[in-house]
Write a protein that binds this DNA or RNA. Sequence first.
DNA 1: TTGTTATAGTGAGCGCGTTCATATTGTAGG
DNA 2: CCTACAATATGAACGCGCTCACTATAACAA
Lengths: 205, 205
Amino acid sequence: MRISEQAKQENRARILEKAAEIFADKGFDATTTRDIASTSGLAVGTLFNYFPSKETLAMTMVTEALGQGEEDFLRRRSEKEDLAEELFLFIASGLRRLRPLRPFLGPVLERSLSPFPRKNICPQGEATRLKHLSAVQRIISRHGFRDAPDFVAMTMYWSLYLGMLAFWTNDESPNQEATQALIDYSIRMFVQVISGVDTGAAHAV
Amino acid sequence: MRISEQAKQENRARILEKAAEIFADKGFDATTTRDIASTSGLAVGTLFNYFPSKETLAMTMVTEALGQGEEDFLRRRSEKEDLAEELFLFIASGLRRLRPLRPFLGPVLERSLSPFPRKNICPQGEATRLKHLSAVQRIISRHGFRDAPDFVAMTMYWSLYLGMLAFWTNDESPNQEATQALIDYSIRMFVQVISGVDTGAAHAV
DNA sequence: TTGTTATAGTGAGCGCGTTCATATTGTAGG
DNA sequence: CCTACAATATGAACGCGCTCACTATAACAA
């Protein structure tokens, strides 16, 4: 049964499309893989030939959206922005592309992007994290910081970024102004840290 | 079958004890509720009479530990500490009590304390979050900040705290110095923010 | 046209957390 | 002592994500 590459891509695309619809309708957890499979006209087993897990299926949509967001960002940014402005633009570009997925993103991002170490690594999530962090590092170095931010700083950045995502998934303010305020605040804090502003002596433990 | 209150408390205590052992041995996800029940000498159904979910069972241990950590903190703190030092002591006190649970805490904290909104709220997790945040607010006001930190600042605090917990669950450095550095950094950043240090103008969106 | 074969498709089945109809049993009233 | 009752215990059963032994078929060689 060697079906054409085209037929395979059609199956894959149909699964992603139908899954997105059902996720948006019923939420991620309430959607069953049997439901996705039958709606896509396939058996459950076949679904798992295309995506190794329900989580990976959802994360594929996220990865795609964030990739487009990064492209948008690279297209839009100009030379005149300072570091904080550019980071803000980068993050906002990602959120804009994630927008259609927002209704069901909570559980997906929580499980796949969590900084807690997992046994069952979802490779999509790890890859997405690394790609995002690389982009941030590149933005920072473009602004003339000679040393890349250290591991501790990037760990803090990821915590803050997850907080922004979490807040955003639930932000009902008219234009997500609340989320914008949180992003703004978080970025300023982060920029200050990597700028090496003295924040006091270390504590004894 | 009206068993005595004492017998009920014994069952409850035995479940918690045996569950902690098996979690520590095999990890949270690999431990089955059937396993916990039979090791405790009960049927599965009975286990769920005592705890509404496996997650709540684990979070009960966390809540207990953090409660003791807070008591330790209140007992130890002196008047001479500054805000950052006191916050550090508070967080470190919690981690010291969580220490025995560390081998299996990752998935538990990830699911129960996550800032992502959940349908299936684990009440233990939400209560623990609120209790921790209240304690932080109390510490801050003790240090003469007339206005309580706003919602955005506390949201950022929780993101940073989760990042510390996540990092700590996996920190293999000799005395968790890496975690100490992260806590130190994060607290200084947070204190700076609530001190109202000017961090630059807001961005246009 | 007719095998042959690699590839994709299938759904019964597994182990999980959790539920619920039913069985069991400690206690109180006659 | 017995009976009735309500609190507690029980484990078969459910629906879930996911697997795997098996079936079906598209494409090629003869």
